[in-house]
């Protein structure tokens, strides 16, 4: 009998979440559009479909994030969203503003 492998394309250890309060994850290697990654959020497994190419070291949203909402990494506010960001989308300078710029 062929084992059921629905998550065969799922990539473990491809993205990191620092704190369980975070709403962004960081890609360890470049993730192509359509790839599926598993990230551990405070012991709970989140399975996320990557919506656009994420270069290694760059971030993507773990949840849908509305416009003007805090982006949380290290359990702290690292920026605010300039647009609404969907789960699996790239989070970077094009859709994030820094509250500290003065």
């Amino acid at each position: 009998m062929t084992p059921f492998k629905p998550l065969s394309v799922m990539k473990k250890g491809k993205a990191v979440i620092i704190d369980e309060r975070d709403n962004v994850a960081t890609a360890v290697t470049t993730l192509e559009k359509g790839s599926v990654v598993s990230v551990n959020v405070g012991g709970k497994e989140e399975i996320i479909t990557i919506k656009e190419r994420i270069p290694g070291g760059h971030k993507f949203a773990i949840y849908d994030i509305d416009w003007g909402q805090p982006l949380i990494k290290y359990g702290e506010i690292m920026g605010l969203s300039k647009t609404s960001i969907k789960r699996g989308e790239h989070v970077h300078v094009h859709n994030v503003t820094s509250p500290s710029k003065r």
């Binding site: 620092i18 960081t26 890609a27 270069p55 290694g56 070291g57 760059h58 971030k59 990494k73 290290y74 359990g75 702290e76 506010i77 690292m78 920026g79 989070v91 970077h92 300078v93 994030v96 503003t97 820094s98 509250p99 500290s100 710029k101």
Partner: peptide, 22 residues
């Protein structure tokens, strides 16, 4: 830093101060 994926100054500095814990 931006090319490497760091988006804001907060993010860069948070990466450093997290050494001390929370």
């Amino acid at each position: 830093n931006i090319e490497g994926g760091i988006t804001t100054l907060e993010e860069k500095s948070l990466g450093c101060i997290y050494k001390g814990g929370t």
